[in-house]
Design a protein around this nucleic acid. Structure first.
Lengths: 337, 337
DNA sequence: GCGTTAACTGTAAGCGCTTACATTTAGGAA
DNA sequence: TTCCTAAATGTAAGCGCTTACAGTTAACGC
């Protein structure tokens, strides 16, 4: 294959030095119009594309941010990422995405990969990860923002919301509908502070309402419709069966609703089910899910802004906390005894 | 921030040359055990990570594949990508993902970005794009595979299925249920051969059944629930209203179903609606969607294999065609007049 | 012990780009 | 015109890594 044109090829074709070509590309205002035109047409004629590696090597920067999200499968991350990416793009940065499958060790590998590839900054989801991961980043002076949470031991920049409080409010809302026998289908809490906090939040509400915590059944499963369905089966066959099940997210809730209907249960008449996240799915299934709305797009944008600022300022900055909101739809009803 | 350790730092700490360190990292079998151990421990102590740019520059390869998908929003691409990525990973390659938002020009930009960043190979969705894009890749000798389609003018390697035939079969299936007044909600066909082919396929079936093609109404919309809902409104208020609407994909179908129900129509009793893709959503909504199953995971794997082969062989290879299958669920019923 | 060979390891030349610094050029002011 | 200054451009030194090639070492047969 014909070797790709290099800066030097462009330079000699345009009859200028490589430095000038480089300047044309990176700070066009520094070069006079008529040379710039010469250079640009040489670029076009040759179909020149700068070599990223060379650039990274020479400039010690890549204009690249990385994001490690738990999964692409959940629309909520995909949306947030889209927003994050757009915001970055407007500052001339490009985004590299990797997924961790909710595994901290896998996440660390992905972080390494992104850093190796020159990520100038990172977006991470949740605060709960081995100290090694934080140290790795700190040692290299790579700025990162931790999203989807409102606090971290690491004095990291957090852009998120209070999972615990949001879950508590939702549970209070459920309790206010008369439910006292409440169960929960949660994601795996190990290594996932968001999931763990949501469980805590529900417990908080239970405690405030003086409901016996020992009677609170929570089952942890992977975030999949099927797993949620099986979890629902398990919960509904305990005695007495819960009158409401609060779910760690909307996918879980959708799985539970589907299974409930398959068992001939009417939602919310026979059983109430609530979700968390407010993804599109929540308003497509029947009944539409009562859930917690989390402003993922706004978080994505804010995270990008923070990262950009940190890069500029070369230090950690405070993050931003968002409020969540309960979206009242159809899947929560009064207790029916 | 402390400058990152370089190959040279490792070398001097281990008391060897940089060449040896490089060899330890890239072809460990070439260096004797006891030196390797020395080097590796130096690597650990320093927390050394090779600099990607330097490597790319020196070795003229990146072990990186790129993928430009229309959107991350649709689960079907996300799944295929996941499979694609896993397969690549097992060959030591990493994946860079970009999305085009269904815009050919935006796609071209993304292709450029990926190539700039050193992508050694590309995955593209669909065959319909400006020749410029193909030329750009060909000129640089970058292998690419075109997925989700079974043919392309460009003698590219296609890994996909026959969209037209699949849509035709589905339409025949609908017709076999007695429907003759059929409408369609399609994605935007401009620059999207998959969407265009699916419309063609339906027309084919209509023609075979000697149904007047002029009475066939198709409305093109963005792939969103809302847009599909509006399209449904438009179709259902024509007279006579269709008894079945076939949709370009499951998202569109879900939007149509939701709107139909909101209008008090029973699906499929009052109106039949069918989808395409068989994403998870299809079996969560009520009624469950009758749809076309496309083997996205297997396509993802096959695409990766093709790309890997092309890289090795340094030439284009024939692709692979998959079969689709109609999944009979609940949203298609007999015509009810 | 010596030469021969094979197995390791070291030397050093770039890969394509940016950028500090040196040099040239142009535009005014005197 | 001449000189000064500022703007434009050129020169060249790396950035961190790989790899051809050269050099060293060790093992072995004689």
């Amino acid at each position: 294959m014909a070797p790709l044109p290099t800066l030097e090829d462009v330079a000699s074709r345009a009859g200028v030095s490589t430095a000038t070509v480089s300047r044309c590309l990176n700070s066009p205002e520094k070069v006079v119009d008529h040379t710039r035109e010469k250079v640009m047409s040489a670029v076009d004629e040759l179909g020149y594309t700068p070599h990223f590696g060379g650039r990274a090597l020479a400039s010690r920067t890549t204009n690249t941010a990385g994001a490690v999200i738990p999964t692409m499968d959940n629309a909520i991350f995909a949306c947030a990422l889209q927003a994050f990416q757009k915001e970055l793009a407007s500052a001339g940065m490009t985004l590299l995405v990797a997924s961790s499958d909710y595994s901290p060790s896998h996440e660390f590998e992905q972080i390494c990969t992104l850093v190796e590839r020159g990520a100038d900054g990172l977006l991470l989801i949740g605060a709960d990860r081995p100290k090694t991961s934080y140290d790795y980043l700190d040692k290299r002076g790579i700025p990162y923002v931790v999203a989807w949470t409102n606090h971290s031991d690491q004095a990291a920049c957090c852009v998120g919301f209070d999972n615990r409080l949001a879950a508590k409010r939702m549970a209070e809302h459920v309790i206010a509908h008369g439910h006292r026998n409440i169960a929960m289908i949660s994601g795996i809490t190990e290594g996932n502070d968001r999931a763990a906090e949501r469980v805590h939040g529900v417990r908080d509400a239970l405690a405030d309402a003086e409901i016996n915590p020992d009677a609170f059944k929570v089952v942890e499963v992977n975030y999949s419709l099927d797993a949620a369905g099986r979890a629902f089966d398990k919960l509904i066959t305990t005695s007495p069966p819960p009158t409401a099940v609060v779910c760690g997210n909307d996918v879980l809730a959708a799985g539970a609703v589907t299974r409930a209907k398959a068992r001939g249960l009417r939602v919310p008449k026979d059983i109430s089910i609530v979700g968390f996240d407010d993804i599109e799915l929540a308003s497509v299934i029947e009944p539409k899910l009562t859930t917690v709305h989390v402003p993922h797009r706004r978080m994505g944008v804010a995270a990008a802004k923070c990262l950009l600022d940190m890069r500029e300022l070369e230090r950690t900055i405070p993050g931003r906390e968002f409020m969540t909101e309960i979206i009242e739809r159809e899947s929560l009803g009064p207790v029916n005894r």
